[in-house]
Amino acid sequence: MNFTRTRHTARSQRNNKIANIAFYTLGALVMLLIFWLLFTILSKGLPSLRPDFLIKQPEEIDAGGGIGPVLFNSFYILFISLLISIPIGIGAGIYMAEYAPDNRFTGALRICVESLSSVPSIVFGLLGLAIFAEYFNVGLTILGGGVSLALLNLPMLARVTEEAVRAVPGEIREAGYALGMTKFHVIRKVVLPVAMPAIVTGVCLVAGRAFGESAVIILTAGLSTSGEMWDFNLFSPGETLAVHLWYVQSEAIVEDARQIADKSAAVLVFVVLLINFMFRFPLWLGRRRGR
């Protein structure tokens, strides 16, 4: 009996070591792939990037154009989409996790939200095109692009928020109720601070997706700009950096199209990384202060 137990223990330890080596190897390969992609994209564009490239107008024929208006439109449309999707998506996730009854209707609603999260973005682009360009007859606009991106990101944000809130241990809620707190105060003061890192991760995902989205923008905001650097008019055309990158790479006739594409790709990747840092830095700072 002792010999059998010893063999079983040795086999378990050997399998544990093999599993550890395998998972560490997979993690290292994934990290190497990510760093290789980042290095490849950034090394092609950043060395030749100049500050004037970020504020100059794009050129259709002559070389030396910039990305000023399309970069501004990217941030403007991102701001509009987050302004709509964050309160609605987080609110819907909290409702599904804390207030919605556990019945068939709620289960069907959850399945619908999960299904919408996997719908191709071009479907939301066609929906935005039908609503803004055909029904309201306002054409391809910044407003249409921002609202369509918000609709695209709502299901994912709601689902991430629901899972983050559900992952909070029940003992924490019971401690709040034991102190005489109401349900709303338990959610606001206890549950949300614990779930906030996961919620911020969801916001980072949808923000990065919105900033780099092209299919929705082509169908709802168009392939052009108003020609002004700081155009806050919601009904102006809203070509973004991702759409401009696609256009320059596939259809542009300027002689330095390849260089513009490389620099635009580097700026796009850098901004996505910057967005993630800006959302996560306050959480990291708060954890440091809490120690």
Rank of each mutant, 00 (worst) to 15 (best):
Y76N: 04
V165S: 04
C112W: 12
V191F: 07
G146R: 06
L127H: 07
A130Q: 13
G89I: 08
A195S: 12
I187A: 06
F79Q: 03
G144M: 06
I187S: 07
L152A: 00
L78G: 00
F79N: 01
G139A: 11
L154V: 08
P197C: 10
I131Y: 12
G176D: 08
T161M: 10
F124P: 01
I77N: 00
L129E: 08
I122F: 08
I142S: 00
G139V: 10
V113Q: 01
F132C: 10
S81Y: 00
L157V: 11
T106D: 08
I90F: 02
L126R: 04
R159M: 15
V191Q: 04
A130T: 13
I172P: 00
P197T: 13
L71Q: 02
E162G: 04
I122C: 01
R104K: 14
I142Y: 01
V160C: 00
V160T: 09
L129D: 04
L129M: 15
E163T: 14
V190E: 13
G128C: 12
P193E: 13
L154A: 08
I172E: 12
L129T: 14
T141C: 07
V123Y: 10
L78A: 00
C112F: 15
V123S: 11
S115T: 15
F184C: 10
T106F: 06
D102H: 11
I67H: 02
G176W: 04
V168N: 02
F105V: 13
Y99H: 12
V194W: 04
G180C: 07
I122N: 00
V194M: 11
K189C: 14
I77S: 00
N103V: 05
P69N: 03
P169L: 04
L71C: 09
N73Y: 05
V186N: 11
V200G: 09
G139W: 14
L71K: 01
I199W: 04
L140V: 05
S85T: 15
G176R: 02
T161V: 07
A130V: 14
F79G: 07
G202V: 02
I142N: 03
P69E: 02
E114H: 09
E171W: 06
L109E: 08
E162P: 01
M96E: 03
P155G: 03
R188Q: 14
L126G: 01
R104A: 15
G91L: 04
A167N: 12
V165M: 13
I142V: 15
S81W: 04
T141M: 04
L151V: 13
G139Q: 12
D102N: 14
A63I: 05
G144A: 15
N73A: 03
V186W: 08
P193H: 10
I90T: 11
L71N: 02
G170M: 09
L149A: 05
A164K: 03
I77F: 00
V200C: 05
I77P: 01
G176M: 05
G144P: 09
E134N: 15
P197G: 10
F124E: 00
V194E: 14
A108N: 11
T182V: 10
S74M: 03
L152D: 02
A198I: 01
V190S: 13
